[in-house]
Write a protein that binds this DNA or RNA. Structure first.
Length: 548
DNA sequence: GGTGGCTGCCC
DNA sequence: ATTCTGC
DNA sequence: GCAGAATGGGCAGCCACC
């Protein structure tokens, strides 16, 4: 029987070593110790734990708190999987006296989390806080620390999914490739661990792409520019890159389900996609694509607008009329009983063309020279899209991998902004001022905040800016140091978004530091009029729908 | 009935 | 999502 | 080159509170 303290100790040991091999050893030892017997159901009878100890151990030590919702589960049930515990709810545990001796088992915790997930309705925040405090009262100091990090998604042990995959291979003496393959075919690491334990290599190798079981989507790396992309992939397949939400669509007969990038079943939110794919003649299909809202003339609407539809749990018929979603597929992973993930992209794209009408596919060209590629990029941007994808036409579908077979090329802008304040970092950035508050000149001697960023800062730059900012501090609280607005920093970003939060009504999307501009004073920073002008150029490409 | 905070999940 | 860092 | 850490803005949904 595995105890919670075993996990807490392992997590602490993982954080304390930098050696990946040592981390894998430690994880493998834990997995080997897991019971092989099934866990009994929870007392309520609803939302049962089921499964085996090893599923929980594998999930929790990779930071996955809850199993993904399984296909076939009703929409109402999907919500039950969520814990609704964040930093604010966690405050209920701040003053809880720890238990002197460790007593909780993995099974105990699984049941307690199920009970927490079942708390809903009026008064739920109070009851959830009480249940959480009750759980913490049964945990020792070390267990409390582990629980806090687990529930807040801050394990910080330097080992998540990839080390767990290696550990599963090590623990049950299975070739790494077999475990990695199983991992890409199943969203839930717990299921992979359980299969490895109970059925070994043969059990994992028997897995295939299964309809209505989402596989991990293939990911892309960033290219600096078109020349960089063409240098890495001399004869790429180029596609429009659309700014929407990734969808994986499974079809069998008239039945269709749509999954998000994280493998969540979002079918209820996108009935028009279901209808369109259900009407296709292919009897079995797995498609990979992007969905977004378009204007009546077919131009892409801002990502924010797409999310008003895609972000909801249930369909809203009126909104659906106003903002219909369109899907553009770019890959075909299975067709009529045949799995295509091991076939080259060129073959998969051909299968897509035969199966899905052109209106439901992304535009693409193949074997482009530099000039044609450049034209294609200009065309994509003129149409209001994000940029291009460059893909190796001979590559197989490497689920979950962010390799160099797929490159993304996105437009970016930059502004010279003034640092208004900075927040103290945490984890490996503890002791450094990290997250910068950025403002544009307001034209009247003041500044208008447009967002924050912590990206693009090297350790050296963090040290430098901490010193510089502290020397300019005018006010500080626990988190934030406000400074005299003197330092100018060049900020790259992809897009301006409308904001209800920031005073200028605009915010930066994907802001990152390019470099400090010691050559510039705050009077030479960009002003809000320039920022507004840039936003106007953006929306000029993306007018609101004509009707209400 | 409106507003604001928190959470989960898109990017 | 983007970026940096250690392995 | 991969994996992990650090942390961004905005959306809906749910709940607390007035």
């Amino acid at each position: 029987m595995t105890r919670l303290i075993d996990l807490a100790n392992a997590s602490r040991a993982l954080a304390a070593t930098r050696s990946r091999a040592a981390k894998v050893d430690r994880l493998a030892a834990l997995l080997r110790h897991c019971d092989r017997d099934a866990i009994a159901g929870s007392e309520t009878g609803r939302n049962e734990v089921g499964g085996r100890e090893i599923e929980q151990v594998a999930r929790w030590l990779t930071g996955e708190i809850r199993p993904k919702t399984t296909p076939g589960s009703t929409p109402g049930r999907a919500g039950a999987a969520r814990l609704h515990i964040g930093p604010a709810q966690m405050a209920a545990t701040d003053a809880v006296e720890p238990a002197p001796q460790p007593r909780l088992t993995v099974t105990d915790l699984a049941r307690r989390l199920d009970a927490l997930a079942d708390i809903r309705g009026s008064g739920s925040q109070t009851r959830r806080a009480a249940a959480l405090a009750g759980l913490f009262a049964e945990a020792t100091v070390d267990e409390q620390g582990f629980l806090r990090r687990l529930l807040l998604g801050e394990l910080r042990q330097g080992a998540l999914g990839a080390q767990m995959v290696e550990a599963i291979a090590r623990a049950f003496d299975i070739p790494l490739g077999s475990v990695q393959r199983a991992r890409m075919l199943r969203a839930d690491i717990g299921e992979v661990a359980r299969l490895a334990q109970s059925a070994g290599r043969a059990g994992l190798d028997a897995l295939g792409l299964t309809l209505f079981q989402p596989i991990q989507p293939m990911l892309a790396s960033a290219a600096d520019d078109l020349a960089d992309a063409l240098a890495q992939l001399p004869e790429p397949l180029l596609e429009y890159k659309l700014d929407g939400a990734r969808v994986q669509i499974h079809k069998s007969g008239r039945q269709v389900r749509v999954f998000s990038r994280q493998g969540n079943d979002v079918s209820a939110a996108v009935p028009e996609l279901i209808d369109q794919v259900a009407a296709l003649p292919a009897s079995e299909l797995v498609l990979d694509g992007e969905t977004l809202a378009l204007t009546q003339s077919g131009r892409p609407l801002p990502f924010q607008t797409t999310m008003r539809r895609f972000g909801r749990q249930q369909d809203d018929p009126a909104l659906r009329q106003q903002l219909p979603l369109t899907v553009f597929c770019f890959d075909c992973l299975a067709l009529d009983g045949e799995t295509l993930i091991d076939a080259p992209l060129r073959t998969r794209r051909a299968a897509l063309s035969e199966t899905v009408p052109a209106t439901m596919r992304t535009s693409f060209i193949e074997a482009a020279n530099a000039a044609r590629a450049s034209d294609f990029l200009a065309q994509a941007l003129a149409a209001g899209h994000e940029g291009l994808m460059a893909k190796d036409p001979g590559s197989t579908y490497a689920a979950g991998a962010r390799g160099s077979h797929w490159l993304k090329l996105k437009q970016s802008h930059s502004l010279d902004l003034v640092v208004l304040a900075a927040e103290w970092g945490s984890g490996r950035r503890r002791g450094w001022l990290s997250n910068l508050h950025l403002g544009a000149r307001d034209g009247a001697g003041g500044f208008i905040m447009l967002g924050k960023t912590f990206k693009g800062l090297t350790d050296q730059l963090l040290a430098w800016q901490t010193e510089q900012l502290l020397a300019r501090a005018v006010a500080r609280d626990d988190q934030i140091v406000h400074v005299r607005p003197e330092l100018v920093v060049e900020i790259a970003f992809n897009e301006l978004q409308q904001s209800r939060h920031y005073p200028g009504g605009l915010a930066l999307r994907f802001a990152r530091v390019k470099r400090y501009r010691p050559d510039k004073g705050p009077a030479e920073a960009d002003d809000i009029h320039g920022v507004r002008a840039l936003f106007e150029r953006q929306v000029a490409y993306q007018p609101e729908p004509a009707h209400d």
